[in-house]
Amino acid sequence: MHRTILTALAVAVATAGTAQAQSLTPVTFGTNWLPQAEHGGYYQAVADGTYADCGLDVTIQSGGPQVNNRALLLAGRIQFHMGGNLLQAFSAAEQGIPLVVVAAHFQKEPQVIMTHPGQGLDKFEDLKTIKLLIGDNGFQSYYQWMMDAYGFTAEQREPYTFNPAPFLADPRKGQQGYVTSEPFAIEQQGGFTPNIFLLADYGFSTYATTVEVMQETIDEMPDAVQCFVDASAIGWYNYLYGDPSGANALILDANPEMTPEQLAYSIDKMKEYGIVDSDEALDLGIGAMTDARFKDFYDKMVAANVTPANLDIGAIYTLDFVNKGVGLDLKKELTGQ
């Protein structure tokens, strides 16, 4: 009798699990690079079942050097895409593409310039006295803003080939990087901690790690969009302030070149520099966006001749799914503050 009851219970649990799985809406989120801590909140929401709790079966499809997930979004092959900074969305507006930013999970883009310590290069203005290793994409975007806003020159720039050797060899050169990544590599390879200048803290006001969807997705499945935005915010709170081991296990499994040490460093720097949780997110919740920030960054890019004037940037974002304070109570619970 006891065995029969247990068997019946097991069947009931299995049936319920199958029914839940069948009721979930399958969607794909394409990232813009290989799995890393900078994607941790999304992996955490998968690991914790947070997406499933609000009705989504989320597949995270990683990007990489040979993968163009943004093209798959535009072609309707995936439902959600991780944008970089807002320049990509401005480009969509310029081309009349019905792409919409529905959340911004990085309040600050992690872009930095690094210098050697002990060289009198301790202030942002000091960077104007040395050569700077800047990649082509950076030169066409944030470096144009640096020239317009601060008086940096094109002659200072040397092409960066994503090889740190020239920077390590010359203490009078600066190098671009991400605060969550390149400084760690310099510490490991060079044996010193570089000076770090986070461009966001000097006025490069773009959001980053945005969630992009096509307008058709908003029209056809708004509840799924809301679920993804809310669950991702909760995932980020759990990843930053709770136990990130579930997400890290998924990241390490999906990216064999990643290490636990790199993940720990990246989490620490995201928290130290307020990459995810700062500015508007402190009051409105992770993923927050405002009209003022969009306008401020757009105006700066127009002034720097990076983006054309007279774009209808209001068409490429919506505040309908953010600024609801989702996860703020969880943050208090996890941090005790």
Rank of each mutant, 00 (worst) to 15 (best):
E109Y: 08
S91D: 08
A21I: 06
E94T: 07
T18G: 15
K331C: 12
A185N: 06
G63T: 05
N305W: 02
V306T: 09
L319R: 00
G190V: 11
G120Q: 02
A16T: 02
W145S: 05
L311W: 09
Y273T: 03
T25E: 13
L199N: 01
G191H: 14
A149R: 15
G55Q: 04
D53N: 12
L121K: 08
P159C: 05
A104G: 15
S205K: 12
G246H: 06
R3I: 03
F152E: 00
Q44F: 13
M82N: 09
K300A: 15
Y150D: 03
M301W: 00
Y143I: 10
Q95L: 12
G83D: 04
L87M: 11
M270F: 12
A200I: 03
K131H: 14
G242D: 10
P166R: 11
A288S: 14
D48M: 12
V211H: 09
Y239P: 00
I218H: 03
S266H: 10
I5R: 14
Y143N: 14
H105R: 15
Q140C: 00
T290C: 07
I316K: 08
E94Q: 14
G177T: 07
T59W: 03
Q36N: 07
Y241L: 02
A75D: 13
T4Q: 08
R157Q: 05
G120Y: 08
L127K: 06
S62M: 08
N137C: 00
D126A: 13
G135V: 01
L87V: 01
A309H: 11
M301I: 02
G96D: 11
G314H: 01
A231N: 12
V322A: 07
T7K: 08
D136E: 13
G336R: 09
Q189N: 07
N305I: 04
L87A: 09
H81E: 13
M270C: 02
I218E: 00
T318P: 01
V46D: 02
L87W: 12
I78Y: 03
G118W: 12
T210A: 04
L250M: 06
S205N: 14
K123F: 02
R157D: 01
D122G: 05
L132K: 01
L311M: 03
G242V: 02
H81D: 05
Y178H: 14
L72K: 15
T210Q: 08
A154E: 15
T115K: 09
F192Y: 15
F184M: 09
G84H: 13
Q88W: 15
Y51H: 04
L198P: 05
I130K: 12
